[in-house]
């Protein structure tokens, strides 16, 4: 079997090297000393150290920014999930006039380049002193999370059989009862997918955080970019920060891989 697919295996192996080497290299460099990180030819044999990590922790309030990232991610994900599921349910279950326009609107907002929203957000938030604030940042993140959740939940709930809910209402359950007891448990995988993507997009977000925050509400991606200065780039701490941003996402990926594939391909397959 392996011999028959020799070309395929070779191709995939080369791709794996190209895909994984940069990630490996960042993690590998992060456990060198700050001086070794700059050395060319690169040092391959060395005693692993966490010096770069301690530099990150001592030079930047890492935990504070980590908490900021976490708070904004959780708040925006929860808000989008709650509101988006209600809307997705309504769109999937009822005939609403102008459905084609609604689907265009949802699609358009999902595709919308966030750079367009940064300018008005900045000016509006400034007027009432709302820049550099975790709650306004949460609202800003919701502008891309909510359409995404509506889109996913709409697609997901459309696939669920309506007959189940009808059966429940014939049995005397109110619509709310049917929604709560029948549809919600069935929609769990849809929730999982939406939550994963909303959380990932918020965790990775950079553009809004860069322009709408100062020192108070700064998030981790902005902190990571701050290591790039005009004079010099401290590659040691940069790789350490990069590693700390990547690891949670990789663990997350391994845990939720099935849902991930489902969310990405929802609408694409079928």
């Amino acid at each position: 079997m392996i011999r028959k697919n020799g070309w395929g295996y070779g191709y995939v192996s080369i791709a794996l090297i190209i895909f994984l080497f940069p990630i490996f290299w960042v993690m590998f460099t992060s456990i060198k000393t700050p001086v070794q990180a700059f050395q060319i030819p690169p040092v391959w044999m060395f005693k692993p150290t966490f010096e770069n990590y301690s530099i990150v922790f001592s030079k930047q309030p890492f935990l504070y920014y980590f908490l900021n990232s976490l708070i904004v991610t959780v708040l925006s994900t929860a808000l989008s999930l709650f509101v988006g599921t209600l809307a997705g349910y309504s769109l999937a279950r009822f005939r609403i006039r102008g459905q084609k326009w609604i689907s265009f609107a949802v699609f358009f907002t999902k595709m919308f380049p966030p750079i367009v929203l940064v300018v008005p957000f900045f000016v509006i938030f400034r007027q009432f002193g709302g820049t550099d604030n975790l709650y306004t940042l949460t609202l800003a993140y919701t502008s891309f999370n909510l359409p995404f959740v509506i889109w996913l939940m709409w697609g997901f709930l459309k696939e669920l059989p309506e007959s189940l809910e009808e059966a429940a209402s014939i049995d005397g359950a109110s619509r709310f009862g049917a929604m709560w007891r029948i549809m919600l448990p069935l929609a769990k995988p849809g929730f999982a997918v939406s939550a994963i993507f909303a959380a990932m997009n918020s965790w990775n977000e950079f553009l809004f955080a860069l322009n709408l925050t100062g020192t108070q509400a700064k998030t981790l991606p902005v902190m990571a970019a701050n290591f790039v200065t005009q004079e010099a780039i401290l590659w040691g701490p940069v790789t350490a920060t990069g590693t700390m941003l990547m690891i949670p996402l990789f663990i997350f990926t391994l845990l939720v891989q099935k849902h991930l594939v489902k969310g990405l391909t929802m609408g694409a397959v079928k």
Partner: peptide
């Protein structure tokens, strides 16, 4: 393993390649 690159934070992708493509280091 092939899915990992799209999971990396875009800012970190930028930093990663800036490091790899750096002229001196």
């Amino acid at each position: 393993l092939l899915v990992l690159p799209m999971m990396v934070t875009p800012v970190v992708v930028g930093l990663m390649w800036k490091f790899i493509l750096d002229y001196n280091f």
